[in-house]
Structure formats: C-alpha cells, structure tokens
C-alpha cells in the first residue's frame, strides 16, 4: 500500500443527516487508517447504518465532509462517485442482495464487467474468489438455490473482487445463525487481512464487533467519547 500510514484513508467530520424531521446523524465523525478494521455499534436508531451509508458514498449527508484519500466525496461528479463505490469500495449487506437472475460467478464478475474488463478474465477472477471463500461448488447456482451462508460468502466475494481499499459491511451476519455467521465472518476477516483492505462493520452483535481492531460507539447520531476508554490515547 502506497499510502502514508499516518494519513487516514477515510475521514468523516461533523456529519448530519435527517430523514424528514427525524435526525439520524448529529455531527458524527470518524477516521479510518489504511488496513484498519472498525466496528460501529450502538443502540437501535443510533444512526449506525446511516453513518456507514454516508461513509460509503451511498447516501449524501445533509452537512459535514467525507474524504477518501484526501478527496471530498461531495466534490466528485456522480460518475466518479459511482466508479469509486464500484472499484475502491466493497459493500456487504445483511441479506447479501445478489442479483437473483444471475449465477454466483456472474454476480461476482459483475463489478469487473461494469469496469469494462473482458468477460473471460472477469469470470476467471470471480471463480478464483469463490474458491478462495470455499463456495466454488455453487459457482453455477442462482441465489435461491444456495444456503444463507453460501449466499453471504458469494456476496463477500463480490465485494472483494475489485480489490477495494475499504469494505463496508452492514450487519453482515444478521441473517445467519451463530456458527454459519461466525464462519462467514472468519472468511471475510481473513480475506480483508490478506488483501490489506480496511473494514467498516456495522453490527449490534458483540461477537461480530470483537473481530474489529477498534469499536466506535454511536449514540443519538454522534460518536461517543472514546478518550476515557482504557488504553485510549490522551
């Protein structure tokens, strides 16, 4: 990785976001270092998913700034932001959200095809990732024919196939039982460590939060003071 280790890969300052009259974020800030994994936790309605979506450029904050490698997301054109999301960011959601009409290998190859990569090359990369995540056997299957754990691993493969700098995961094991979820999570964390990507994880599950290097607790749309945590700087 060429980034200076003291230079954050992603930083968010003073994010505010409301849905109608309901505030979701009230000045949330967060800094992510390259290769770091952070779990965003907090009570229901504290703004966890909204923060993740703002960081990932899926949702625009009403005010506040998100920068990726020093570039403000709100200053990018729509096309550039879409490309950033497709290439530099990987997204894993609670229910996988695979395209049901496509097979596993087609789902995983999709981000590469959208980038204009040749079909054969995209399919080969996709298959490689499916095998790496131990779901090579479902390469030709559609999502309805897969178990929840298999579908989630396929979704993880799709998020990693472009070798993103950051993977955003919103309750990635929320739809799985404990052991299946743990296995899918192990696979995600191992792959992230191997590729050197950073991870931002939203979860209400302590066992999922425990895989991250650091926890950021959100309450009422703001990040709770971390300074009095034992071991925290300052």
């Amino acid at each position: 990785m060429t980034t200076d280790p003291v230079e954050p890969i992603l930083s968010a300052r003073g994010l505010h976001k409301s849905f109608g009259r309901t505030p979701a974020l009230n000045g949330a800030s967060l800094v992510l270092q390259p290769g770091e994994s952070v779990a965003i936790t907090g009570p229901s309605g504290s703004g966890k998913s909204t923060l993740l979506h703002c960081l990932a450029g899926v949702v625009r904050a009403d005010s506040g700034i998100v920068t990726f490698r020093g570039t403000r997301l709100d200053e990018l054109t729509t096309d550039d932001r879409t490309r950033l999301r497709r290439v530099s960011f990987g997204l894993v959601l609670q229910f996988g959200q695979l395209v049901p009409e496509l097979s596993a290998v087609e789902n995983v190859a999709l981000p590469l095809l959208l980038e204009g990569r040749p079909r054969a090359e995209a399919a080969a990369s996709a298959l490689q990732w499916l095998e790496r995540l131990e779901v090579g056997q479902v390469a030709g299957s559609r999502s309805l024919a897969m178990s929840g754990g298999e579908a989630q691993r396929v979704a993880i493969a799709r998020a990693l196939v472009t070798s993103p700098d950051i993977v955003f995961a919103d309750e990635p094991t929320g739809a799985l039982d404990t052991v299946t979820g743990e296995l899918a999570l192990d696979v995600l964390v191992k792959a992230i460590k191997e590729t050197g990507a950073a991870l931002v994880l939203v979860t209400h599950d302590n066992r999922v939060a425990a895989v991250a290097d650091r926890e950021v607790v959100l309450r009422d749309g703001v990040v709770e003071d971390e300074t009095d945590h034992p071991g925290a700087a300052g």
Binding site: N206, R207, A210, E215, D228, H229, G231, A232
Partner: peptide, 11 residues
Amino acid sequence: RRQRAVHLTAM
C-alpha cells in the same frame, strides 16, 4: 462505558 471497552478487548 469503560467496562464495555475492557470486556470487548477481552472478547
């Protein structure tokens, strides 16, 4: 809050 951080570190 601090106890949570200690527990999560152990976890």
